[in-house]
């Protein structure tokens, strides 16, 4: 029998709670509420009132990150209680905090404080302009790079699949890039619901400030391997983790290559630890013998 290797994958944000059937899932709600309670004491009292059925916090850029982190940790822990263990962990963009917590490198509270610190530094850095991110589906990287020759400050900051890319930059530039992308034959080109140009050079100074906080934390060695979305290598030592946390703010990442690398390493089962299924949807065009499952599919069995 071939060995099935499993990766738990964690998104950065929550887009919706449409796949959250947690009220039907024994134990899950209690654990989620327990973590929400801790989070409300550590970073934000409003988290106590979080209600997925009300689609809470989807437009609040910081709280949706907290919620994604809390869900990620809660789901991963419940899965492990059910004897479903990850061989690898991987966080999409700011999903790194859940991955590092579940890998044993940072405490739950420190994960929340990292999210808050990163967001605060980013907010200071970007308060003088209007920034954002955009998604383009249906063009190749070279098609997009050709468009970007006219918009030198816009960067491709992530690749989700061979024909799906994420860009960061100033909002006005991105809006013009999207118009050009549609003219060039993109199936889909739209602004994302964020006001921060994550993973771009605009955040380098924020990352340097964030580093001051990162280096005060007690970061431990990983007990479960975490794969870097920046380099696709395993993150090894606490020093590597610190560097990864800082660079994750302003360096490009490649989700597509990361998934392929995990598959090369024998992963055939990806479990999305989130209330939605955005990463599962993203994986549609991934070729190979692997399956992507959402929280609901696993926990409702």
């Amino acid at each position: 029998m071939p060995v099935i290797k499993t990766a738990f994958i964690f998104p950065a944000f929550v887009r919706d709670y449409q796949d959250d059937k947690s009220p039907r899932i024994e134990n899950f709600n209690n654990h989620l509420n327990h973590l929400l309670d801790i989070a409300s004491r550590v970073v934000d009292p409003e988290l106590t009132y979080f209600d997925p059925l009300q689609q809470d916090f989807l437009d609040h850029e910081l709280r949706t990150q907290y919620v994604a982190y809390i869900y990620g940790c809660a789901i991963s822990e419940i899965l492990q209680q059910r004897s479903i263990y990850p061989d690898f962990l991987c966080g999409y963009s700011m999903g790194i905090y859940s991955a590092l917590n579940q890998g044993g490198a940072i405490s739950f509270a420190d994960g929340l404080l990292l999210i808050r610190s990163a967001f605060q530094e980013i907010s200071y850095t970007t308060m003088t302009g209007r920034f954002g991110m955009a998604g383009i589906i249906g063009l190749t990287e070279s098609d997009i790079l050709e468009i970007l020759t006219f918009f030198p400050e816009v960067e491709i900051t992530n690749q989700n699949s061979p024909y799906s890319f994420v860009l960061s930059g100033r909002q006005s530039d991105l809006e013009n890039v999207l118009i050009k992308a549609i003219e060039e034959g993109a199936f889909h080109a739209r602004m994302l619901n964020v006001t921060v140009p994550y993973h771009s050079h605009f955040l380098k100074s924020a990352a340097l400030q964030f580093a001051k906080f990162v280096y005060t934390l007690d970061i431990r060695s990983l007990k479960i391997p975490v794969v870097s979305v920046l380099s696709q290598d395993l993150i090894k030592s606490p020093e590597d983790i610190k560097a990864e946390l800082v660079e994750n703010l302003y360096k490009h990442f490649n989700w597509y290559k990361t998934q392929l690398k995990l598959m090369e390493d024998g992963v055939t089962r990806f479990i999305e630890c989130s209330p939605g299924k955005s990463l599962k949807k993203n994986a549609r065009t991934i070729e190979g013998d692997c399956q992507f499952e959402s929280m609901h599919e696993i926990l409702s069995r």
């Binding site: 249906g138 063009l139 190749t140 098609d143 060039e184 034959g185 199936f187």
Partner: peptide
């Protein structure tokens, strides 16, 4: 090419 289909679909 995908972009040809995209242009047609517009």
């Amino acid at each position: 090419e995908l972009k040809t289909i995209g242009k047609y679909a517009i």
